[in-house]
Design a protein around this nucleic acid. Sequence first.
DNA 1: TTTACTGTACCGGCTGGACGGTCTTGTCAA
DNA 2: TTGACAAGACCGTCCAGCCGGTACAGTAAA
Lengths: 177, 177
Amino acid sequence: MKVPRANSREKILAAAADVAREAGPGSLSLEAVASRAGVSKGGLLYNFPTKAKLMQGLVESYLSDFQKALEARATEAGHESVLSAYIKLSADDCERPKPSASWMFSAIAEDPDFLTPIKAFKRQLFERLKGETDDLGSLLVCFLAIEGMRSMNLFDSDVLSEDERKLLVSSLLKIAG
Amino acid sequence: MKVPRANSREKILAAAADVAREAGPGSLSLEAVASRAGVSKGGLLYNFPTKAKLMQGLVESYLSDFQKALEARATEAGHESVLSAYIKLSADDCERPKPSASWMFSAIAEDPDFLTPIKAFKRQLFERLKGETDDLGSLLVCFLAIEGMRSMNLFDSDVLSEDERKLLVSSLLKIAG
DNA sequence: TTTACTGTACCGGCTGGACGGTCTTGTCAA
DNA sequence: TTGACAAGACCGTCCAGCCGGTACAGTAAA
């Protein structure tokens, strides 16, 4: 069967994220991913010659998706600050009950260095936000609070209720000005 | 009643945390822990009949340590709010360059449910803080910002500089009132 | 006091199974 | 023909859990 002329890479990346989310980050094996993607192990290894490359692909696609989404938000609302766009984007991301990035735990278990690009990205984003305001203290509070929100979502923590999250977001937007 | 040579349980727990931190969360194997603790594998399995029990032990000791530290801070400074104590405690925890809880990633990989007690603890702490203030918005911002700080430390993110962290903490204390 | 028994605390080798990565051979569409 | 996989066998490694020992402290009868 040679049906899927479609891009296998993306299917595989999506499958990997699905497996990590549903079967747990510890169950992210090449076979599981291949099976989930409707691809043979050989086919997977053709696209990603090693597991490390797969993880790297996950990180890269995550980052590029995020950047695209942020840019869209920032320009869409025109004159609102990037910080506001970041807050809203993160709020929407965290609305989804299921964490979409459990694969990150697999990546860390494989090698903590896989997070390096993510750290760099965050620092870069922070620098960009710094250029937007002169109230560094407020920015730090907002930036870290968003980080906390994303972290809770990642850990699948239902610590906050829907209402609390909404109040949090509106408070952040107020601080952000 | 025979007393264990030295409290093996605690030695093992400390060794497990060390291994996860130094060799990476993916390298937390029973043998590595046993060797690090100066205990044979059999001895480890005697104290923790299964890897899951070891993880559970890590979570429990982490939580009880944290609770003790928080209580100490809260009473030590007498009349200051629990939120302030929580902020300061977290700031000090995050001052240490190396994350002390990398084992959490191993636990998640093993089974995400290991985090359930931690979630419950956090919710409980949040409820307690809620009783202390009537400005829920500010509390949420502080609580989540602390969460973000702890998360960054856990991920070993050197995204913030020393000065930025200090400014963050003082901003949080100001918001906390 | 000696001997025999019991439970505790720990040792360390073993194994069955899973997993990652490689390789070979085949297939089908462009 | 060639590029993009399919299908899966194979191998080396690793690891959790199990099991048979060992050392020793306490107990208690003889």
